[in-house]
Design a protein around this nucleic acid. Structure first.
Lengths: 232, 232
DNA sequence: CCAAAAGTGTTACTGCTACACCCATGC
DNA sequence: GCATGGGTGTAGCAGTAACACTTTTGG
């Protein structure tokens, strides 16, 4: 039991495939949305998160960056590793371990990026406040679960994001460079699935020091225009 | 660019090896300690975190449980996934992606478990409060960095644990079933690397509702005996 | 002037810190 | 009694929630 360990080469073991699955989130028209892809293989017709295999010479972060370029023509933005899923039966194609990432993109940076690919869609998320798995709302209005364990992945991404709203400036990742406090509150409310009190929200955000006023006012407001703010 | 995607089989891609690396932490004599193993292969003589390959038919969680059984004869306890490390050059043996987990074990449950294996050691951690990588203090007193990117993994585990102390009952995982508030404070101080105020700490813990008094008193105290508490 | 949304003042509550103090035990 | 660590009371400060209120715009 305490015998000297023998050193075994890497080739002694069957190797799993490793993929990166991406939860690309945005807030559009006050609703939390996620990028999904219609599968054509074993689970044809089902919707899933976009993903791809980790190439043998690229890091996980590089795989995500490649996915973001290929699927949404996006160079930068907020990206963070979420969790790694490795149950042996999670993918019907074989043993696939998936490292999940989530990315946040302002809605205005997505326009024209993903539209051209017919099997990709940006769908609203129906995320309960309790423990149930979230579903997506397809363009035709149908409510649908995601394939594989992707519902679980999406749920974890939303949970992580909700937690981060409380103590970080992560909400700003979903807004353009200049934004009003109302827009920021809309983003928070869409993610949390709850209404927030305006005065408390304003002061909390301003006290944090994550944003600074510009002195500029929004254009084209129906009523009193709000001041525009900027990050940091 | 918007062409129909071709479905490629898993065998189209070279596959990386996948390992689980384990950060087993405990607090012994008021010091944060980690389980490390002396390597005999490419990095012979260096110390690293214990780890092992993910077998083709086991989940990641099962791999961790197997490691805990083999390295420390431990059945249960607190275990949580930490992060997945995947830079192509992180392991000199080839392309190895490592899913890091951390585990918390009370010091009294480790006695007699890992001692028998000569290349395993439970070493004190020298973790700075700033950004520097932590080092381990070998039994002979030498301060040493860990091999590969394991210093980075250890640093992340300590950071995660420090964060969790604030809002969860995770400190209790490092204590026996019955414990005093002083012992719990010692655990927090060892992990945070800082002294805490006694009255504030007591009340914070009791208000949380994570622990309840038993009415029992500790034995063999030199002075006034403290009350013993229990989880939940 | 009115409607609607932006933005502010006031109060109260809660969680935490700091400091002083009392309590129970072995010697 | 005394030293030592266990345990409590009180005051103050910071962050936040609730509510009422004022301000600024387009029509």
């Amino acid at each position: 039991m305490a015998a000297k360990r023998t050193v075994r080469p890497l080739t002694d073991f069957d190797r799993p495939s490793v993929t990166v699955d991406l939860v690309l989130l945005t807030v559009r028209d006050g609703a939390l949305c996620v990028l999904v892809i219609r599968r054509e293989d074993q689970v044809a017709g089902e919707w899933a998160l976009p993903g791809g295999f980790v190439h043998i010479d690229e890091s996980l972060d590089e795989t995500v960056a490649r996915l973001l370029r290929d699927k949404a023509h996006l160079p930068g933005g907020f990206v963070e590793q979420l969790y790694t899923f490795g149950k042996p039966d999670r993918d019907p194609r074989g043993r696939v371990i998936s490292v999940a990432y989530y990315a946040l993109v302002p809605a205005d940076r997505l326009e024209g990026g993903i539209v051209e690919a017919g099997d990709l869609a940006l769908t609203k998320v129906e995320a309960s406040l309790s423990g149930a798995l979230p579903a997506v709302i397809l363009p035709d209005g149908r409510l649908e679960r995601l394939a594989f364990d992707h519902g679980e992945i999406l749920k974890m991404a939303i949970g992580r994001l909700r937690g981060k709203l409380d103590y970080s400036a992560v909400g700003l990742e979903l807004l353009p460079e200049l934004f009003t406090l109302r827009q920021l509150q809309d983003v928070h409310e869409a993610i949390l699935g709850a209404r927030l009190a305006k005065p408390a929200f304003r002061r909390k955000m301003l006290d944090r020091g994550f944003l600074k006023p510009t002195g500029l006012l929004e254009k084209g407001a129906a009523f009193r225009p709000a001041e525009l703010y900027r990050r940091v």
